[in-house]
Structure formats: C-alpha cells, structure tokens
Write a protein that binds this DNA or RNA. Structure first.
Lengths: 210, 210
DNA sequence: GTTATTTTGTACCATTTCGAATAAAATCCT
DNA sequence: AGGATTTTATTCGAAATGGTACAAAATAAC
C-alpha cells in the first residue's frame, strides 16, 4: 500500500495532468462563488481544467468533492483563528482583532468581487437537508466557539475581563461577531466597515470604552 | 384598473384554483428547505399544487418568484422585530429577549425539522453573484441594525446602559447575536440552547452580571 | 344561449445536468 | 521493445431543468 518510499514518486501509469491540492482549491473557489447546488460539474471541470472522469476518479462525485472542499476550508479557517488567538502575552484585544483580520483576509482574498466566508456562503444553505454537511457545520462552529473560549478563559484568569464577566458568554459573543462579519461580507459590505464593526465589538467584549 | 369595487371580486374568466398569498407562502416554504438553486420549478409546483403556467402567470419566473418570497420574509421578520422592540416602558433586557424569541418562533415554526432563518438559509448563498438578492440582503440587514439602534438609543437616553456605552456598537452586537442564532439554528442546534445564547448575550449587552 | 375572457392542464422544446462507457495516450516494469 | 497500468479525452445516455404553446375548461358579460 506504500506508494512513496522516499523522494521518488514512481507512480505506475500515465502521470496526472493536475495537482490534486490545487485542483481541490480551484473547485473550492468555484463552489465559493456559486454555492453547492448552484455549481455544476461542467463548471467545476472548467475551473479545474480537469475532465469529468478525472475529477471523478480524484474526488468522487460532486457531493464528496464538496465535503472535501468544506473540510479543507475548516482546517484553513480554524488554523488561522488559532494562530491569531495563540497566547503570546499580548492583550486580549489585540488577539481578537488579529483573529477577525485573519478571517477578513480570507473573505477578501483575490482580485475578484469579495466572496465572504465559504462556510456561510455554501454550507448553511445545504445544512438543513444534508446531514453530512450539517454535521460538518455544527462541528466547525463548536470548534470555533472552543477556540475563542480558551482564549477568553486565559484573559479571565489574567484579570483582563471586567469583574463578574462570563468568559463562555463572551466567547459566544466573539463567535457571533465573526458570524455577523461573514454574513455582511456576503451582502457586499466593504472591508473597512467590517473591520470597524470588529474593532467596536472587541471593545465591548473587553469591557473598554468606545 | 379597479378590479374590486367592494366585496364582490367579479373577475372575468375562469376563477383561480389557488390563493396567491398562500401559494407564495408555500413557495417560500419550499425555497426555505432547498435554497434557491436547489429548488426546481417542479418542486415549487408540487408544493403549491399549481401547474407550471399558472405559477408563471402569477409570480413570473423562478427568479422573480424568489425575490417576492424574500421580500415577504423581510416584511414578516422585520415586523416581528419591531413589535418586539417597541418601546412599552419595559426594560431593554426584556425587549431584546422578546425580539430573539420572536425570531426563534419563526425559525422553529411547524412540525418539520427546523428551518432556521429564510434569509440566512437562501439569500446568503446567492448574494455574491446575484445583484438583486444582494441588494435585498444589504437593505434588510441595514433595517435590522436600524431597529436595534433605535431601541438602544432609547435605552441609552434612559440610562439603562453602562456608563460610556456606545449604543451603535451595541446595536451591531445585538444584530450579531441574531445572526449567530440564525446560523446555529441552521446547523441543527436545539432551540433551548439558542435561547440560552440569547439570554446570556442580552446580559452582556445590557451590562449585567451573568 | 352565445361570446369574450381568464385560468387550467397537458404536452412539448431546447438545454443542462450527473454520471458512465470506451478508446487513446503516457508512463513504469520486465 | 513489449506488456501492464494509470490517466486522459471524447462520447454517449438517461433524467431533470427552466420555460412555453395550445387546447380545454370555467366563469362573467351581453
């Protein structure tokens, strides 16, 4: 079962004309714009430059391809959040704002019209009728909450929060701020406005004036 | 142009076999579950009991039908928010919780599996590539913000908020709480949990302990 | 009763959709 | 070089899609 015993790939048959990672990223980009139901296999083929059977052999049918795209996005997105929230001794305010900035960078990546959050833009619609997508969504949201909560717990123990503050409630609020930014990004609200929302919200969460 | 000069409808041709209002509501329900792209005309016909040409004559093509459904939902939803936030002399905390409860009642209406928010579930996906849907989305979100802000301004003038609090920032946060609830509802989070999120968030917004 | 008017129901059309079958092409192993 | 193996490219097919044409049906006006 080992197909790579070192540096030489040594695959047997005709070499692939595509790179699986970049192909998955291109497919993700396409779903990002059109949604799951709104994106056809033809569009995915055009975007990835792959023909139908290759796409199929590489990622399975449309549904499993989308699930892989969704999984990849969660990993990317949560990694960015965790790095931003990593405890580096700096104040909570900075960490939170760094987390929101990291997400905004994803939402507004590329030259095209802003795409917002991939999860909000594609998974939310399908979640109600698709169990697997719904489970992935619920799991990702829970991890996001958990990441914020860890950081707010640290801040609480360090006395950064207001007296009597509830770190768990504030963590949910921190998630809520990210959610509202994701939604507004999809509605075409410019990036600077979204950042301002984040900045003011961080002040409220941290219990500061203005 | 007057087609109803009192109580007698007196339409000329064959009478309609459907009620436009209920038909639009049924179409809305169908979009609610499947999304815009994920819902076919056949499904809309099946749900409304209308045949294709009748649906067409009544509401135009799929796109305009959806826009009417979206408009109707905004009206219903914002009306509920405004009624809940109406100043009746009671404390802000109560008004906010009433607003969230009103939305939860919409999200969890019916016996079927919970559908969450219609806007979040259907418009967000299409908004990026569809200008009309995006505009409707942006306008609705702005009105939601405005409704919260009016109420928070009142609370501020009445001294209900913490010293130095920013009513506008808190209004955005109040919207954010609604957004996160809408997203989580779509992810299958049970109603009681969502209400608890609302309750705790209201306490933070109002500057109370726990 | 006849005619005008509006809606209904069936059938139809062109296109798109997802998926698969098949043969050609490009590599590795011997 | 020859065979095995894997991927590519073209093609096909059955079903679903959005939208429309047209005759039958049901009512109001005359």
């Amino acid at each position: 079962m080992v197909q790579n015993n070192g540096s030489a790939p040594t695959r047997r048959g005709r070499p692939r004309a595509y790179n699986p990672q970049t192909a998955l990223q291109l497919a993700t980009d396409r779903f990002w714009r059109g949604g799951y139901s709104g994106t056809s296999l033809d569009q995915l083929c055009a975007e990835t430059g792959m023909n139908r059977p290759s796409l199929y052999a590489a990622f399975g049918d449309k549904h499993t391809l989308y699930l892989k795209a969704l999984e990849g996005y969660w990993q990317l997105s949560l990694k960015a959040i965790r790095e931003a929230l990593a405890d580096d001794g700096k104040p909570l305010k900075e960490a939170l704002l760094r987390a929101y900035d990291a997400q905004l960078a994803i939402y507004f990546a590329g030259d095209e019209s802003p795409r917002g959050c991939f999860v909000i833009g594609t998974a939310i619609t399908e979640a109600v009728e698709d169990v697997e997508i719904r489970n992935s969504l619920a799991a990702g949201l829970a991890m996001l909450d958990a990441d914020f909560e860890v950081r707010l717990q640290v801040a609480h123990e360090r006395g950064e929060l207001q007296a009597g503050a509830d770190p768990t409630a504030l963590a949910t609020l921190a998630s809520a701020v990210l959610h509202t930014i994701a939604i507004r990004a999809r509605a075409g609200i410019p990036r600077v406005e979204l950042r301002e929302i984040a900045r003011k919200a961080v002040n409220v969460i941290c219990g500061l004036q203005s």
